[in-house]
Design a protein around this nucleic acid. Sequence first.
DNA 1: AAGGAAGTCAACCGCCCCTCG
DNA 2: CCGAGGGGCGGTTGACTTCCT
Length: 192
Amino acid sequence: MDKKPCNSQDVEVRKGPWTMEEDLILINYIANHGEGVWNSLAKSAGLKRTGKSCRLRWLNYLRPDVRRGNITPEEQLLIMELHAKWGNRWSKIAKHLPGRTDNEIKNYWRTRIQKHIKQAENMNGQVANSEQNDHQEGSSSHMSSAGPAETYSPTSYSANIDTTLQGPFLTETNDNIWSMEDIWSMQLLNGD
DNA sequence: AAGGAAGTCAACCGCCCCTCG
DNA sequence: CCGAGGGGCGGTTGACTTCCT
């Protein structure tokens, strides 16, 4: 994507999507040396990436225990309940969902649940329009300061799951082009 | 069949917090 | 006690894919 900045003396830093080769290097290196200081890890492994980038890639995608795709109804419920409790504390929420990453949960929330909540709210709003619609929603709900105080409750979540959410969510299948298993088997062949 | 719109997801950015010297 | 460095977290962006017209 981006070409390297080509700045005078600094080591070029790659950005954008990770290549399979980079993934393998990172996996291999961590398999052999373990996680450490990410900045030096990136250098030692010979990756032209920032430590942060390596860490993100590892945590969100390459870790062997990362589960991908197919968020289960139980997980949906849990996410909703925990979000109602803690707000946008994605990493905290992720800790209660083994194999799920904060990034994944965050994306999932923003792209799907939030949308459905909004739809449900709209329907509720039409029904009980004259209630006390306090919230100034408008667009994509700036809950930046982690206010658990959205305008929903776990109870309404469940209702949503039963009706709106379930269909599209559950039918979702996610076939990766090359799975983590593939990568891991490759790195096993590669490394030791 | 082509073009456009909407949805999804991976990755980056910037800020904050924690730890170490 | 203070400052620097690194890590972690949440928000945002951009590319890619899929669906609809």
